[in-house]
Amino acid sequence: MIINNLKLIREKKKISQSELAALLEVSRQTINGIEKNKYNPSLQLALKIAYYLNTPLEDIFQWQ
């Protein structure tokens, strides 16, 4: 199972779901689904999230 800290990191950086979704060219619902662990992002999307949040990938997504 993958645990993610996306919501915590996104809120710490004061970025809304809508703003992050626009940067990543995905829907706000996609961001919401990832934050709620409804599904895991593709590797490409995970890397883009880490890039736009300027945060190491392993700080956002962790195996458990």
Rank of each mutant, 00 (worst) to 15 (best):
E11F: 06
I15M: 15
Y51E: 11
A21I: 03
L47N: 11
L20E: 00
S18A: 15
K36H: 15
N54V: 07
E58K: 12
L20M: 08
T55A: 08
R28I: 15
I2A: 09
I31C: 01
E11C: 07
R10N: 01
A50D: 01
Q29H: 13
L8P: 11
Q17H: 04
K13C: 08
E25V: 08
N37D: 09
L53H: 01
L24P: 00
L24Y: 00
A22F: 11
F61D: 01
N40I: 15
Q64V: 12
A50C: 06
K14R: 14
A50W: 02
G33I: 08
K48M: 09
Q62H: 08
D59R: 08
Q64D: 15
N5P: 02
I49N: 00
A50N: 01
L23W: 15
K14C: 09
K7D: 04
P56Y: 06
Q64S: 13
Q64R: 06
L43W: 13
L45C: 05
A22M: 12
I49L: 07
L45D: 04
A22V: 09
R10K: 01
L57R: 04
Q17V: 14
S16I: 04
K38A: 12
S18D: 14
Q17Y: 04
S27G: 09
N32Q: 11
T30Q: 09
F61M: 03
E25D: 13
L47E: 10
K48G: 07
T30F: 12
K38M: 14
L24S: 07
N4S: 04
I3N: 08
L8H: 14
P56W: 04
E58G: 13
K12Y: 13
Y51N: 10
N54E: 14
K13H: 12
S27R: 08
E25G: 12
E11V: 12
L53P: 00
Y51I: 08
K14V: 06
R28V: 15
A46E: 02
N4Q: 04
L45H: 03
L6A: 04
A46D: 00
L45Q: 06
M1G: 06
K12F: 10
N37M: 06
P56N: 08
N54Y: 06
Y39T: 12
K14M: 13
I9C: 06
N54L: 06
N5R: 11
L45R: 02
S27V: 03
N54K: 12
Y39F: 14
Y52I: 14
Q64P: 14
N37I: 03
S16T: 15
L47C: 10
G33H: 15
E11M: 11
L23E: 09
R28A: 14
T30P: 01
I60R: 00
I34P: 00
L47D: 06
N5S: 05
N32K: 15
L53A: 02
P56F: 04
A21S: 08
T55V: 13
F61T: 01
G33D: 15
P56G: 05
L47S: 10
A21P: 00
K36P: 01
N37K: 09
F61L: 03
